[in-house]
C-alpha cells in the first residue's frame, strides 16, 4: 500500500519542526499559517480604515501643529450638504455609466469578431490591446494634443466626417463636450480590457452546444441571444465590476486631460478628495469624504457581487 500525500508530507517535514508542530491542534496550525496574513491585513488595511473613521470626526489637518478637535458629524454634514460634492458625484456617475456602457458594448462586439477565426486574428488582438498597455498619464497627455482644435487629429477627423470646422469646437474646453471627452479617452484605453474578458467568456463556451443548436435548426440570432449572451454574462458582469471599481477611482487620466475643468465639470470624486486631502490638507474632512465613498463603493459592489453569484448559479 502506497503512502498517502499527508504521510509523504509528514515524512518530508524536518524532524525538529515536526517535533515542534506535533503538539499543536489543527486549529492552531491553521492559525499559524493564516496569522501572518491577518496581521499584515490588520496593519495595512483595517487599522488605517479605523484610523480614517476616527479622524473623520475631527477637524485634524495633517500639515498643522495644532491638536485635532472632536467635531462629531460636522464633516459628514458639510460634505453631504455641499453642492460641489454632489456635482462631483454627478460627474463621476456620468463618467462611470457611459464608460462602462461603451466599453461593454464595443468590447463585447470586438471580442465576438475576434472570436471568429480569420486570417490575422492574433495580430488584430495585439493591436487592439495596445492602448491598455500605456500609462494613463501618458494617454491623458497625448489626448490633450489630439483634442487641440487647431492641430489635433481628433478635431480633423470630426471635420472630415461631419464638415464641422475643426477649430470651431474644443473637446476639453466646452461645457457640453468635456464630460464626453474623458469618456471617449477612457473607452479608447480600456475597451481592450473588457474585450479580453469577454473573449475568455466566449472561448469558454463549448462548440458542441452550438452544434446541438444547429441540429435543432436554431437561427444564428437565436443562438446569440439564448446561448452566447447567457453563457458569457458572468464574464460581462465581471468586466463591469472591474471597470466600475477602477473608474470610481479614476484620477490620473482625467487630471492630465482636463485638470477637472472646465469649471468643475470633470472634477470626479477622486480628484475632489485628493484636493481636500493633499492640497487643502483638510485631513478630517477628507477622511469623512473617503468613508462616504468607501461605503458607497462597498455597498454597490456587495449588491453587485450577490447578483453576479446568482447569475453564475443559474
Amino acid at each position: 500500500m502506497s503512502a498517502s500525500p499527508i504521510d509523504r508530507a509528514a515524512q518530508a517535514t524536518p524532524k525538529g519542526l515536526a517535533r515542534r508542530i506535533r503538539g499543536l491542534s489543527d486549529r492552531a496550525i491553521a492559525w499559524l499559517f493564516v496569522g501572518p496574513s491577518i496581521v499584515l491585513l490588520l496593519a495595512v488595511n483595517i487599522f488605517p480604515l479605523i484610523w480614517t473613521i476616527n479622524l473623520s470626526f475631527t477637524n485634524f489637518k495633517a500639515n498643522r501643529l495644532r491638536e485635532a478637535k472632536f467635531i462629531g458629524l460636522r464633516n459628514y454634514e458639510r460634505i453631504l450638504t455641499d453642492t460641489d460634492t454632489w456635482n462631483s458625484m454627478q460627474a463621476t456617475a456620468h463618467f462611470l455609466f457611459w464608460t462602462i456602457f461603451f466599453q461593454v458594448l464595443i468590447g463585447f462586439t470586438l471580442a465576438y469578431l475576434i472570436n471568429k477565426k480569420f486570417k490575422g486574428n492574433d495580430m488584430w488582438t495585439t493591436i487592439i490591446v495596445l492602448p491598455m498597455m500605456l500609462s494613463p498619464a501618458v494617454v491623458g497627455n497625448f489626448w490633450t494634443f489630439l483634442y487641440q482644435p487647431q492641430i489635433g487629429l481628433f478635431n480633423y477627423v470630426i471635420e472630415f466626417f461631419t464638415g464641422v470646422d475643426s477649430s470651431s469646437f474644443s473637446m476639453i474646453g466646452d461645457v457640453n463636450l468635456a464630460p464626453w471627452s474623458i469618456v471617449i479617452v477612457d473607452t479608447w484605453m480600456w475597451t481592450p480590457f473588457v474585450m479580453l474578458i469577454c473573449l475568455a467568456g466566449l472561448r469558454s463556451i463549448p462548440d458542441s452546444i452550438y452544434e446541438a443548436a444547429e441540429c435543432d435548426r436554431a437561427s444564428k440570432w437565436r443562438q446569440f441571444w439564448t446561448l452566447t449572451i447567457p453563457m458569457a454574462l458572468p464574464f460581462l458582469m465581471l468586466a463591469v465590476l472591474f471597470r466600475g471599481i477602477e473608474n470610481f477611482k479614476m484620477f490620473d487620466l482625467v487630471v492630465q486631460l482636463t485638470g477637472g475643468g472646465p469649471g468643475s465639470l470633470t472634477t470626479l470624486t477622486s480628484i475632489d478628495l485628493k484636493r481636500e486631502a493633499f492640497e487643502k490638507w483638510r485631513t478630517g474632512y477628507a477622511s469623512a469624504y473617503a468613508v462616504i465613498l468607501f461605503v458607497t463603493v462597498f455597498g454597490l459592489a456587495s449588491i453587485y457581487v450577490k447578483a453576479l453569484n446568482k447569475v453564475k448559479e443559474r
Partner: peptide, 12 residues
C-alpha cells in the same frame, strides 16, 4: 477677453 480674443482650445 477669454471669449472673444483667445485661441480656440485655450481653456486650460
Amino acid at each position: 477677453l477669454y471669449d472673444t480674443a483667445t485661441p480656440p482650445g485655450s481653456s486650460n
